[in-house]
Design a protein around this nucleic acid. Structure first.
Lengths: 354, 354
DNA sequence: ATGAAAGCGCTAACAT
DNA sequence: ATGTTAGCGCTTTCAT
């Protein structure tokens, strides 16, 4: 193999513009102390020669690596890829994160870590030593993994924790889980529903509790009891099936159900059909996660759309900001989900017939 | 911001093991001329200190960057992300490509390029200067973009061209488009169909022609005419709709249709329903692209599954091999698609009633 | 088989 | 406002 060298280096530019390396460096990094005239001349040389700095060299000299690491849960990510069920959060993360990175001359590196592994720290420090990223994005459930958080806190690197609002180091970004659950519940309340069931998500994710709380509080504010209306799930289809069976085979089944994940919503739909409930005539259904699958099912599901792309984009922005200024928001940044009404919710029969 | 230095460098290891930097370097890179005993001692220090080489430094000194760039069409990729229709080729590329990279200590960087842009070269050389990747993966339609190919050929970097078999520089990897179309056609022939329509893909992709040829040849081998059975599309839903209308509203409509993309297959399904054809009773339908959407539609579509993950994995493997040995396969590597039979194909009525 | 020296491209620190 | 110097961590080249 040929030994490849950079085609155009800072030296070439310096020579071409008749200035020192340092001046070129200053221009590249928009640093002060360059006369506009000089800066113009240097920029002209840069453009003429098509010079682009080597991030390896920049990193070597103790500056930026222009790399942001998105750390994702290995097991779950691979499971999603293997199943090909259309879960598109990876795409949405790239969509939001990568494009925002590109705007700032950064690159997003998508990385998997074995969370349920005692060598997490080992794995992470290897990734860090080799890549030396300027920042890190943590997705759930990594965003609340104490080992990962402890490690990152030591690194002095800005990092964003997505999907969490627990205090601690790093920049917390949350999707307003309670508020989203409230939106879902209020939509159903508006449609006249009074017995609104809720299928919660995996307790491994703190957002599960927040969603459940959002539902519970909204119910209570309307003077409604939650008694017998909460069924535990873990985001999976199987757990959704079990939960839906419990809810729908009760003596006084709910007229509407909110499921904390797309898979559980689909499971609920299937169970409802199997038990002779039609959706939305007999039971209304709201899903969290606006995956393609819940859009193409019959009926298409009313959902809370999680703005994954926006969240990732926001994370990148805050990381770059933190890297630059050293400041990051003290309180969690909240990105709001939106309710998308489709065919799985309808006016409550019982109320309508009154 | 703190000036971050590598925690453990080759120096620490050298000191710990009581050898020179050079010897450590040799051990890291599995180079010859190290006594087994020395190598063991050095390895022990590496493990003990948790040393991992900095790729920035490795790259700087003229060695590997351990980075492989996956160059994708910017416009199409973003469109897919925005639409959220469940197209999962990005995920599948990562699935195959990233994991294979990881096996070899490489990293895959997913990168978008503006193909319909005259600055392609500009854009590419910027990415190269900044990242200095060890290899590149080209996806369609980039794999046949003359500007990109010319640029890469100059770079002396191994690169894989996915979805093409046109001769030229780089490692060609193709998904056996003709063979896949043949499989689809033969499945339908086995079911007794004789008038099998075909909706072709965008001529911008050479694979479109290969698929069409596969169908045509198979038909001809069975002594069947293709007259009036070929309708042009461009992979999009809209084009599929138009094509399906032409095919299905002819005086002697086909009893089966093969569509060169998932979207066109879905369009065909919709048109068929609208025109009063039921699928698969009146028309059988085969889709290319095993997207989630075609699996969850009613009826679920029989498809040719494109092994995207496997192809990406293969590309990475061949690139790393080429980087190491300087050798790459002279003929296109072929990764075979598989026919997955689902509910959209059935025995031909006409034949059955004979 | 091992080590020493030079240099990759860039920036921080220190002149001027 | 600009230039000079000294590294960053590693590999290459050239000793030994």
């Amino acid at each position: 193999m040929v030994r490849r060298r950079q085609a155009v280096t800072i030296k070439h530019v310096a020579a071409d513009a008749g200035v020192s390396l340092q001046t070129v460096s200053r221009v590249i990094n928009s640093e002060p102390n360059v006369r506009p005239e000089t800066q113009k001349r240097v920029q002209a040389s840069i453009d003429k020669l098509g010079y682009v700095p080597s991030i390896a060299a920049q990193r070597m000299s103790g500056s930026h690596s222009y790399l942001i690491l998105a750390l994702n849960d290995r097991e779950r990510t691979i499971a999603d890829w293997r199943e090909r069920e259309g879960s598109d959060w990876v795409d949405q993360m790239l969509f939001g994160g990568m494009l925002k990175c590109a705007e700032h001359g950064y690159r997003l590196i998508f990385e998997l870590v074995d969370t349920h592994n005692d060598h997490v720290e080992r794995e992470l420090s290897a990734a860090f030593a080799s890549l030396q990223p300027d920042g890190v994005i943590l997705t759930p459930p990594n965003s609340e993994n104490p080992q990962i958080l402890a490690f990152l806190a030591k690194q002095q690197i800005p990092f964003a924790r997505i999907g969490t609002r627990t205090p601690g180091p790093g920049i917390a970004i949350t999707m307003d889980d309670a508020g989203s659950a409230r939106k879902a519940a209020e939509h159903l309340l508006d449609l006249g529903h009074r017995r609104i069931g809720f299928i919660s998500g995996s307790p491994e994710f703190s957002l599960s509790a927040r969603r459940t709380e959002g539902w519970r509080v909204t119910m209570e504010e309307h003077g409604l009891s939650c008694e017998g209306l909460l069924a535990p799930g873990d985001f999976s289809y199987a757990s959704g099936k079990k939960a839906a069976r419990v809810l729908l085979s009760s003596s006084n089944p709910p007229t509407a159900i909110i499921a904390s994940s797309g898979d559980m919503a689909l499971a609920t739909l299937d169970v409802a059909k199997a038990l002779g409930f039609s959706v939305p005539e007999d039971v209304s259904l709201i899903s969290f996660d606006n995956t393609p699958k819940v859009r193409f099912i019959d009926p298409p599901l009313t959902v809370i759309d999680q703005p994954i792309a926006e969240t990732a984009s926001c994370a990148v922005e805050l990381i770059i900001e933190a890297k630059k200024t050293g400041n990051s928001p003290a309180v969690p940044t909240i990105v709001h989900g939106t309710l998308i009404v489709r065919g799985s919710t309808a006016r409550c029969r019982e109320t309508a017939s009154r």
